[in-house]
């Protein structure tokens, strides 16, 4: 009996561990093999729970660097914690060394879409060399 329980325990552990063999490759549910945590029975529950607790977008990293043209470049990496695809808009404003907003036609609302439980990233380029910092705003994309 003890052996059977041990085998079952290892099977469960392996089923969960088998999710991410390759970090670079994301196999979505209904593409990858179903497992105990993600199958035809648990998926609707997971979606309902995600909506109930209001999961959304999370920004994990905002990297700034000077590109080869000499302009400041912002690379934003994030994760959509929700089970649902999140559509949103973002707008980046560039600040000079005095913290003053640089008026530019490129600071407009841009659309972005991130699939559920997935990473996303986007890049924004400052059109002036005097940009040294940024501020970013987001809003729901209706």
């Amino acid at each position: 009996m003890k052996t059977i329980i041990s085998i079952l325990f290892f099977a469960v552990v392996l089923a969960f561990a088998g999710c991410d063999k390759h970090e670079q490759i994301h196999l979505r549910s209904e593409v990858a093999n179903d497992n105990l945590a993600n199958n035809i029975v648990t998926r609707p529950v997971a979606f309902a729970f995600s909506a109930l607790i209001g999961e959304g977008i999370e920004i994990s990293e905002a990297v700034m660097r000077r590109n080869k043209g000499g302009f400041l470049e912002l690379n934003v990496n994030g994760f959509n914690n929700s089970q649902f695809t999140k559509k949103f808009q973002y707008r980046v404003e560039w600040l000079d060394q005095d913290g003053v907003v640089i008026q530019t036609k490129t600071s407009v609302w841009q659309r972005m879409s991130a699939m559920g439980k997935s990473q996303f990233s986007f890049k924004v380029v400052a059109p002036r060399a005097e940009a040294v910092n940024f501020r970013m705003d987001t809003r729901k994309w209706e």
Binding site: K68, G69, K105, T106, S107, W109, V124, V125, P127
Partner: peptide, 19 residues
């Protein structure tokens, strides 16, 4: 037009083609 122009300018300046 705002979105298209913004993307075009950013792409052009990021490429370094006009530097």
């Amino acid at each position: 037009f705002d979105q298209a122009a913004s993307e075009m300018v950013q792409s052009m300046l990021a490429s370094g083609a006009v530097k």
